[in-house]
Simulated scan of single mutants.
Amino acid sequence: MRKVVVVLLLLAMVTVFGIKIRLVNTAGADFFYKEIVLEEFKKAHPEIEVIYGTSDDSTFYSKLRAEKEAGLFDKNEVDVELLIMGNGPIWGYLLQENLLLPIIPHYLSYMPNVRHLTDLAWQAAVIGEGFGVPTLVEAAGPILVYNSEFVKNPPKTVEELKDWISKHPNRFIYGSPRSGAGKLWLWGVPPLVGDVSEYSDLDNPKEFRKTWEFLQEIEPYVQSHPSATGDMIRMFAQGQIWIFPMYNIWFQLLRMNGDIPPDTSVGYFLEGTKPIISAHFAAIPKGNTPEEIKAALTFIDFMTSPEIQVRKLAYLAPPLNELVNIGKAPEELRKVYEKWALPELRQDYVFEHFKVILPPPPEVDLKLAETWGEIIGKGKW
């Protein structure tokens, strides 16, 4: 806490004019962060230069950990000033190893827009444990996506899905926990089969008997577990697989953009699904100067402003600033949303008709992924 107070005092004295910061996005959604947020930020804050880059969670984590071990944290010489990452096992490692700067509530005075986050965003903030500001949040699923050209009677329950998979070898696939959609599927199975009602710090994934029985029973009919969700999307688009688990909004974007057949691609919830909140967080690695921290906070605040959050409608995602009035949003944004956001998968519908729960806490999440690797993965990921 003493160090935070010192940094706060320094922030009040420093200027961000001419500051250059590097932003690394490991969460995806470049169409929003790069094409919308970054371009608009350049216009609003020409005094700050932002260099945009992408990585995967594991690579970024390894790099940041190496910088800490090399003593760069103490010298304020880390290479990245701002991170966008989804919650998941690697996020858990970053928190566990104390690699990120605590942001909430310490730096709220530099982020007035964050004070106007929606209730949904504040629910997600719990996952970030004060080290990340939610930038994109949804009741993600998992949903199942199928191609109606090949699947005439989609399974409605877990038992029906298990039966369908056994009768259609290699036509169902799910990713490893290293992939976004694979991680979401692994989160979704324990509440779906009844091992948990909601996740808590006391959960021991090794005791999720029904989860591991179900996944072991379908394993002989699953050819692989890709570590990139994009691989599954490509296989589905090419007709190699017919059903796979996916994020709600991401699926709808794939239809809208024509990445999968829009007329025959269908997304739905299995009976008994408890949709899980998934989030992207903006975070600041430790080891940055006060000037760089202040510039990063300026970017985060801009990203959560009503003017930027309303632009999410074009990407079928809910704005996270409570000051956004969707009814008064620009007509072109509302038209896109009304045309492509499927009524039965829109966030307001999901929250009204399903019990939405938080994902497993970071330590439980890590154990869940590790247990999957021991019991199911066995060299296939």
Rank of each mutant, 00 (worst) to 15 (best):
V6M: 10
L8N: 14
L11E: 12
V16M: 13
G18R: 08
R22V: 12
L23A: 00
T26L: 03
G28D: 03
G28S: 02
E40T: 01
K42R: 14
K42N: 00
K43E: 03
Y52F: 12
F60D: 08
Y61K: 13
A70S: 15
K75F: 05
D79T: 11
E81Q: 15
L83S: 00
I84C: 00
G92S: 04
L94S: 01
Q96F: 09
Q96D: 13
N98D: 15
L99C: 09
L101P: 04
S109R: 15
M111V: 12
R115T: 01
E138L: 07
L144F: 15
Y146Q: 07
E149K: 15
F150E: 14
F150A: 13
K156L: 11
G180Q: 06
G188M: 12
P191Q: 10
Y199K: 05
S200T: 15
F208H: 01
E213K: 02
F214E: 02
I218E: 14
P226Y: 13
F236K: 11
G239E: 03
L253G: 11
R255L: 09
R255K: 15
I260M: 11
T264H: 09
G267N: 03
F269T: 03
L270E: 11
G272Y: 01
S278C: 01
N288R: 14
T289E: 14
E291W: 06
A296P: 08
P306R: 10
A314H: 10
E322C: 00
N325D: 13
A329P: 04
P330D: 07
E338L: 14
A341H: 06
E344L: 15
L345R: 04
Q347E: 15
V350D: 01
L358N: 01
P359N: 08
P362Q: 07
L368S: 08
A369W: 06
G377R: 09
